[in-house]
Design a protein around this nucleic acid. Structure first.
Length: 556
RNA sequence: GUCCCAGUAGCUCAGUUGGAUAGAGCAACAGCCUUCUAAGCUGUGGGCCGGGGGUUCGAAUCCUCCCUGGGACGCCA
């Protein structure tokens, strides 16, 4: 299905064999053949730097080596139409372009699976992301993490990995007690009582609403109840409402999880002592100052970490270790955690734990997502989580729409700080990339619809060789790259590659649209070929957009 | 003080196994609608790739030292 890959593989193999035939280097000394796509069209379809890489081994000038290699290459076998040496020793290769037009029926046949591959070989990967504490609304950092995580999962799945999405619910620690006390305060306030929100409490409007709602539904019923009993109820109630809200917000954002994992379940099923017991066997555990420590410095952490505090309770790390052990026990070969940049300091100790549990360091990958800054009217929107003044995922979704958010958050590399321009995201104009891409899709749909009405699709025979203009070749080549883009995005965990790609396809489409007429009554054969071509473009754009969670509209 | 991320065009950013003349969008300027959606297209200008040193045939990319911005450094979660 991936024609370009097949062709490239053929060329690489032939170059490798040619190098061997030159006897300039031992087979084992020859580096991997790298084929790159030259930016300059005059340099052909592919270029390889192998002659330069062999300079030392062959002990001669790279151009001379290149000549020797070129002389040995069997052009026909590799489908090469032209080959020449350029610059310091590049070998530039051109191939027969007729394969490009074959892409069209292939793409149409594959439809919404075009771009899929089995590269991942069903390797089991678990991706844990968002995992926001159920103590308030999801904010922009979570939104970016959600968009990135979901796109990454889609891309991994498309590249043939077996992916599971999971959300870790921190429903056991202090913060839930604080939630209960905050709900309590808001409830009391709603009843007109003078009651302060605790120091570490949650000041958000969502918590306020929960308290008010309780006051409306239950009246002053809970005022009389014993504090412990009251907090227990508020805790349970608050948790449920917060979690429901998170779930529905994420669903509206187009993100759903396969599994919601409760931290509390680790306690209930004794998983924490189990994990501690396993660690005990490693002699990396010791007692000091009344606490139990994990010697994480044995695996390059800055300092050792406490697992059991002197008061007998666990630190955050301890259930988290149990959680990760549980993930591994479930058979995942790779764990990917997507964390906000503020948690990066936590990575070394978690990786240390993974190793102490007997796994390779790289079993756990942590993708760190940098902060989001919101801009409106050219000014940075100030946010403070403590006072509850942060802009939430839901608010932004109402302001700019899901598609714009998903697109913008998938547009940049995760390790780069992101400036989110609300005015740009809102604008329905040329400078807004999400509209640009969606417009490209809608444009094609309009043409296809008109063609449908005119009966262009009634006769099945299509002569694809009529697609031979420069713009057509360029766009076809781009379409052919899609499977490779997916694989690269998956392997390197860079879903923004897909967003960049779909933008490029859209640019080429718009350019083509303005240069050539697709529907032409005078040229029925050409029209049929071009319509098929447009179908292929539409499929590719739609598939790419689906992966990043952006709707592909049929009209705008 | 230590660690992580970033520093590329006026602005926001690509450039992810080191390659030929460093790219895109926006902004600026000049053009294109009796023709499938002008939410579009075409063209022009714009750069000491933060700075110094190093590695090599070749560095925005790798190493090292500085500078600037952001974040993290708890028996918090």
């Amino acid at each position: 299905m991936d024609m370009l890959q097949t062709i490239e593989k053929q060329i690489k193999e032939e170059i490798m064999e040619a190098v061997i035939r030159t006897q300039l280097a031992e087979k084992n000394d020859i580096p991997n053949i790298i084929l790159e796509k030259p930016k300059n069209k005059e340099h052909g379809d592919y270029a390889t730097n192998i002659a330069m890489q062999l300079t030392k081994i062959a002990k001669q000038a790279p151009r001379k080596t290149a000549e020797a290699i070129v002389n040995e290459i069997n052009r026909e076998k590799a489908g090469i139409t032209n080959i020449e040496i350029a610059g310091p020793g590049f070998i530039n290769i051109s191939i027969d372009h007729s394969f490009l037009t074959k892409l069209v029926p292939t793409i149409i046949e594959n439809g919404d699976t075009y771009g899929r591959s089995d590269k991942g070989q069903n390797h089991k990967i678990q991706v844990e992301f968002v995992s926001a504490n159920p103590t308030g609304d999801l904010h922009l950092g979570h939104a970016r993490g959600a968009a990135y995580g979901d796109a990454l999962c889609n891309v991994l799945d498309y590249a043939g990995f077996q992916v599971e999405r999971e959300y870790y619910i921190n429903d056991a620690g202090n913060q839930i007690d604080n939630l209960a006390r905050s709900v309590e305060a808001r409830y009391m306030q709603a009843l007109g009582k003078d009651w302060e929100i605790p120091e570490d409490g949650y000041h958000g409007k969502d918590v306020q609403k929960i308290g008010q709602q309780l006051a409306i539904e239950d009246g002053d019923k809970w005022v009389q109840v014993d504090e412990k009993e009251r907090l227990k109820h508020f805790r349970k109630h608050g948790l449920k409402l917060e979690l429901d809200k998170i779930k529905s917000d994420l669903a509206a954002f187009g993100v759903t999880f396969d599994n919601w994992f409760s931290e509390t379940s680790l306690y209930e099923e004794d998983k924490i002592t189990e994990a501690l017991n396993q660690l005990q066997k490693t002699d990396l555990i010791y007692e000091e100052d009344g606490a139990t420590w994990f010697e994480s410095t044995a695996y390059h952490d800055d300092k050792d970490r406490v697992l059991v505090k002197s008061d007998g309770s666990y630190t955050y790390l301890t259930p988290d270790i149990a959680y990760h052990k549980n993930k591994l026990d479930r058979g995942f070969k790779t764990l990917i955690n997507i964390w906000g940049a503020d948690h990066h300091g936590y990575i070394p100790r978690m990786k240390a734990a993974i190793q102490a549990l007997g796994y390779e360091k790289d079993t756990l990958e942590v993708e760190v997502i940098q902060m989001v800054n919101l801009f409106e009217n050219g000014e940075k929107v100030k946010m403070s989580k403590r006072t509850g003044k942060a802009v939430t995922l839901r608010q932004l979704m109402e302001e700019v729409g899901k598609d714009a958010m998903r697109y913008f958050f998938s547009m940049r590399s995760g390790d780069s700080h992101l400036d989110f321009d609300m005015d740009l995201a809102r604008s329905q104009s040329t400078e807004n990339p999400v509209f640009y891409v969606q417009y490209a899709h809608a444009r094609i749909c309009t043409m296809l619809k008109q063609a449908e009405e005119k009966g262009w699709f009634e006769d099945g025979a299509v002569d694809y060789s009529l697609l031979k203009s420069e713009k057509e070749e360029e766009l076809l080549r781009k379409l052919g790259e899609f499977p490779q883009v997916i694989r690269e995005a998956a392997e390197k965990r860079i879903p923004h590659k897909v967003t960049q790609y779909v933008f490029d396809v859209s640019t080429l489409l718009h350019s083509y649209y303005n240069a050539e007429k697709v529907l032409d009554d005078e040229k029925p054969e050409q029209t049929k070929a071009r319509l098929a071509f447009m179908k292929a473009v539409r499929i590719t754009i739609a598939n790419a957009l689906r992966l990043i969670g952006v709707h592909a509209p049929e009209q705008m």
